[in-house]
């Protein structure tokens, strides 16, 4: 059976992600409630403002529901703010900001600077170079032993994976390149369901 990929649609670049996933011919479901989460096999957490999303995750009841699904192995892909939400440690966040602790990395919010410092650059990975779009991007300052670094900007990790969790500090959904979504859907989502 083909997987249904959910895109967390509380706030942020969910429309661009949904377009990317749909371009692969995969079913997409926007997720704003725990009921919608039940219908998806995998989840993309988009960029946006992690402080806003963190509050909406709590008020919608999605925080607990997603935590439980991640715990039970749901493939999850977080970009930018989505990566912050998945990280085990968030630096320079708001004191009340919650994260899922699903991947053992320390992430510093907005560490690449403000919008005037936002940039595009090439990222190196084992399956080729990617065009990285970094918007007020977070920095991965530490990766735990279980974390595999897949992509780097210079020497710095920007694309990481631990088990079923994939995280990027950049925005593949803005680069007109669905290869990472394809990797997420085919390698991580479909493989698990065999």
């Amino acid at each position: 059976m083909n997987p249904v990929v959910g895109v967390l649609a509380l706030q942020g670049a969910f429309a661009a992600h949904a377009e990317c996933v749909a371009s692969l011919g995969v079913s997409v479901q926007e997720v704003r409630t725990p009921e919608q989460l039940e219908h998806v096999d995998a989840l993309v957490m988009p960029g946006g403002e992690s402080s806003t999303m963190s509050q909406l995750l709590l008020s919608s009841g999605l925080f607990g529901a997603i935590a439980q699904r991640i715990e039970s192995g749901m493939p999850t892909f977080g970009t930018c703010a989505g990566m912050i939400l998945l990280a085990s440690e968030v630096l320079d966040g708001r004191s009340d900001q919650r994260s899922f602790g699903a991947i053992d990395i320390s992430v510093r919010r907005n560490a690449f600077g403000r919008q005037i410092d936002s940039f595009e650059s090439s990222i190196h990975t084992p399956f080729g170079d990617f065009h990285g779009v970094f918007i007020r991007a977070p920095r991965i300052e530490r990766t735990g032993p279980a974390v595999e670094v897949i992509g780097r900007l210079g020497d710095e990790p920007v694309l990481v994976r631990q088990g079923n969790v994939l995280a990027a500090s950049f925005h593949p959904e803005l680069a007109g390149d669905a290869r990472l979504h394809e990797y997420f859907v085919t390698t991580m989502t479909t493989a698990r369901k065999v």
């Binding site: 509380l10 942020g12 670049a13 946006g48 703010a81 005037i116 940039f119 918007i135 925005h171 803005l174």
Partner: peptide
């Protein structure tokens, strides 16, 4: 020189994408 660009339309429109669904 290292191929990094700032202030492109993609990066500028990108922040607008990040603000969607918000107040």
């Amino acid at each position: 020189t290292n191929g990094t660009s700032v202030g492109t339309q993609r990066v500028k429109r990108g922040l607008a994408e990040m603000l969607k669904g918000g107040v």
